[in-house]
Structures are given as structure tokens and as C-alpha cells.
Design a protein around this nucleic acid. Structure first.
Ligand code: SF4
Ligand code: SF4
Lengths: 144, 144
DNA sequence: CGCATATGAGACCGAATCGGTCCTGTATAG
DNA sequence: CTATACAGGACCGATTCGGTCTCATATGCG
């Protein structure tokens, strides 16, 4: 039920970049600032770039910059880039891989729960994550 | 981000029992009905019983029965019994174990997201999972 | 009483995943 | 031409996961 440590780190890095969206960041520089091992950060940046969340600039003075505005990148985007498609249950991602699928009476309803959770992650942007508690007001509504 | 297969199976078993809450079920019988390996089911039942979700009756003619009504057991309860406390991020469960905790600017907001997801799981009961799509109406509200 | 049944507790193991590192190639600035 | 910095991917140790097995204990029944 926990998301991977890498995906968590990715959100930290992305939010750090989102604070100054117009700057370009090199992997090693970002690693230093965040207190993470440079090779790990480099790997994450590559994943995020391949997913289209970051634009890469090669060569000297190169680095990464956000491909879209911080309000247009969601937690779900970051998680998907690192861990693959999010989803609580197997059958929502790899249909046919669960042996119970035929006689599983709760698959449909699990799907509803699953979709709700994913939607919640899709509804939170990097901009909101960087903002104060007030920026999360929309999410608090989920708890009513 | 995915929950463990065992936890998923546990929800299937619990919902099956919730269909006839007054009956007692033996592990082997339930395994046969659900199409799961008996030893695995036995292990799950033990975990669920230890967590207080099932009452165990030992001896001949024994078995397990729901400790509470199906409307009073949530998905979060089942997941916690099998996988431990649910939660997306490390610092929400094992405070102090994440090296970034000091300078992590998004920890607070991650906590809000985390709480919202957990609350969603707490709001769905076995009874709702067994019901038709209409029973999940409350959850659909999360997607607005 | 004695046996069959059923759970309780926990050790155990192979396989898969995860976290993390490293190496090689390529593109660009200066 | 050289230093910088990303792209791709191989690689490995450690951990977790899924699953099985054994032994002990408690109860119902003949
Ligand atoms: S079919 Fe049922 S048991 Fe299998 S993954 Fe989907 S919800 Fe879980
Ligand atoms: S402190 Fe920040 S990086 Fe560490 S687990 Fe919490 S949210 Fe993730």
C-alpha cells in the first residue's frame, strides 16, 4: 500500500524544481541541494524526462527543466513516471493476471475505490504541494 | 503504490464471509470456495483474527466468524490487519526513518493527501463492497 | 477417554522486486 | 577539442513478498 521510496523522492525533486519553474537544474546540483545520492537523482530525472514531465538539455550548461507549468503536473503524473501506472489492485493494471478474476465478486467495486484514489492523486498539482495548507483545501473535501 | 496481493485476497475472503455474517467458516472450506491455496487462506485468517476482525472458534466444528457486522468493517481495517498501517509515504508510518525529513518541504502536504486516501478506504465497508454499484455512491463524490 | 477436526504461532524458503551504483555512448557549449 | 551533462541500460546486494510447512493447543463427538 505504500508508494516506492523512489517515487516519493521524485515528488520532492519535482516540487523543488517547481519552486523556480524557469530555471534549469542539473542532476548533480539538485542532488546536492536535496541531500540525495547523485546517481539516484540522475536515474529519476531520466525517468521523469522520458515520461515527458521534464525537458532535457544536453551538453555543457545543460540540465532539466519542467516541461509544463507546476500547476499542470500532478502527483499521479510523477508516480506514473517512476512506478508505472498507479492503482491499488492488480486487475486494474494487468487484466487477466489475477486468477480470481472470474469469480471475484468485488472487482467492480474495487475498481470504483481504485479510481477514486487515483483521481485524488491527479487532483493535486506540484503548485499545490509547494503552497501552504490552504492550497490543499480541495483535498480536505475528500474527508467529508 | 499497489497494495499487496495478500491484502487483496483478504478483502475477497472477508467480503465472502460478509455475505452470510452469521455463519462460521473454516479456512479450508473458504479456500475451496474462493479458489485459493488453503495454507495461504489459513495464514490470512490468523492475521485477521489477531487484528480483531474475526472471532476464532477452535476444535471440531470450529472456524471463523466476523467479529463485527459487515457495515462496521472497512477496507482500511482489512488492509491494516494484513499489510500493517496503510499510508503512502514513509514518514507517516515510521517517523524519523526518512533521511530527508528535516528539509522536506512537502511533508506536511503529503500528509494531507495521505490522510485523504486513508479516509477513503476507511469509508468503504464490506457491506458496501458486497452491494451493487449504488452502494458506492458515497465514494463517487470523491471524484467531483 | 481418545480421536478427528480446526485454529495459533512461527519458522522457513524461493522468487521477485526494490534501492542504488556503474559504465558506455552522445550531444552541446565554449 | 575538451569538459560538461544527459541517455540508455546493465548490474548487484538487500529486502520484501508470496507461499508452504511443522508443531502445539483447544474443542466436539463417539
Ligand atoms: S479480480 Fe478481485 S482479487 Fe483479483 S485483483 Fe481484481 S479485485 Fe483483487
Ligand atoms: S519526509 Fe518528505 S521525502 Fe521523507 S517520506 Fe516524508 S514526504 Fe517523503
Amino acid at each position: 500500500m505504500r508508494l516506492s521510496k523512489l517515487a516519493d523522492y521524485a515528488t520532492v525533486l519535482m516540487c523543488r524544481m517547481a519552486a523556480r519553474p524557469e530555471l534549469t537544474y542539473s542532476a548533480s546540483q539538485l542532488a546536492g541541494e536535496a541531500g540525495l545520492p547523485p546517481p539516484t537523482v540522475a536515474k529519476l530525472m531520466k525517468l521523469l524526462a522520458r515520461a515527458g514531465l521534464l525537458t532535457s538539455l544536453r551538453g555543457g550548461r545543460g540540465g532539466y527543466l519542467l516541461a509544463r507549468g507546476p500547476e499542470a503536473i500532478s502527483l499521479a503524473d510523477v508516480i506514473r513516471a517512476v512506478d508505472g501506472p498507479p492503482g491499488l489492485i492488480e486487475c486494474s493494471i494487468h487484466p487477466g493476471r489475477c486468477s480470481l478474476e472470474g469469480g471475484c465478486g468485488i472487482r467492480a467495486n474495487w475498481g470504483v475505490v481504485n479510481a477514486a484514489v487515483i483521481q485524488a492523486l491527479r487532483d493535486v498539482s506540484l503548485e499545490q504541494m509547494n503552497g501552504g495548507p490552504a492550497a490543499m483545501a480541495g483535498l480536505r473535501r475528500l474527508r467529508d
